[in-house]
Simulated scan of single mutants.
Amino acid sequence: MGQSKLLVSIVAGAAIGAALSMLDRSTREKTIDTTKKMKEAVTYYATNREELQVLVEEKVLAAKVLCESVSDNVNTIAEKVEEFKELPTTIQSMIDDTKSAFTLPHKE
């Protein structure tokens, strides 16, 4: 029961906030302009469904390409991190080799 009151209160607050924001002339004009453009777009795509389908397919393809690119970048970064993890061992090995080369007794 308390949950339904919360939902009603949230909806009422949103409606009151929206109504108060409409008192500002520029907000009202922008909202009317946006609503008109949205109506035109809906009407256009309602009559040109094939074009909407092509547009959606293009967006889906672009999203797939972006995901693949991000995935490749993440894999590359992971590989570099692994290389950097091995770097201190390699450097230590080089230091030890250099140190042993200079500390070995030389025969004349």
Rank of each mutant, 00 (worst) to 15 (best):
I77F: 10
S100M: 05
K107V: 12
L6Y: 15
I91H: 10
A19Y: 15
I91L: 15
L55K: 06
Q53A: 05
R28D: 00
K107M: 02
V81P: 05
I77Y: 12
I91K: 11
A46I: 04
L66C: 09
E57L: 01
T103F: 08
E51C: 02
S26D: 09
E108S: 09
E29G: 04
M94G: 05
K107H: 12
S93W: 08
K37Y: 10
T98N: 11
T31F: 06
D97G: 07
E82Q: 12
S9R: 10
E86W: 07
D97I: 09
D24L: 03
T98R: 04
S21T: 08
L55Y: 06
I10A: 05
D72M: 11
K5P: 00
T43G: 00
K80C: 01
A101C: 03
M38R: 12
P88S: 10
I77P: 01
V8K: 10
N75S: 13
A15W: 06
V70P: 03
A15S: 07
K39M: 09
E108D: 12
I32F: 13
K99P: 01
M38V: 14
T35H: 08
T103N: 03
I77M: 04
G17P: 02
V54S: 00
G2R: 07
V81C: 06
L20C: 09
G17H: 02
I32C: 01
E108F: 14
P88A: 10
M1Y: 14
K80E: 03
A41N: 15
A78Q: 07
H106F: 15
A18F: 14
T34L: 05
I77S: 06
S21L: 04
I10D: 03
A46K: 06
T31C: 01
E29C: 01
A78T: 13
D33G: 02
M38K: 13
T76S: 13
T103K: 09
T103L: 06
E40T: 04
I95F: 12
A14M: 12
E58V: 13
L52R: 04
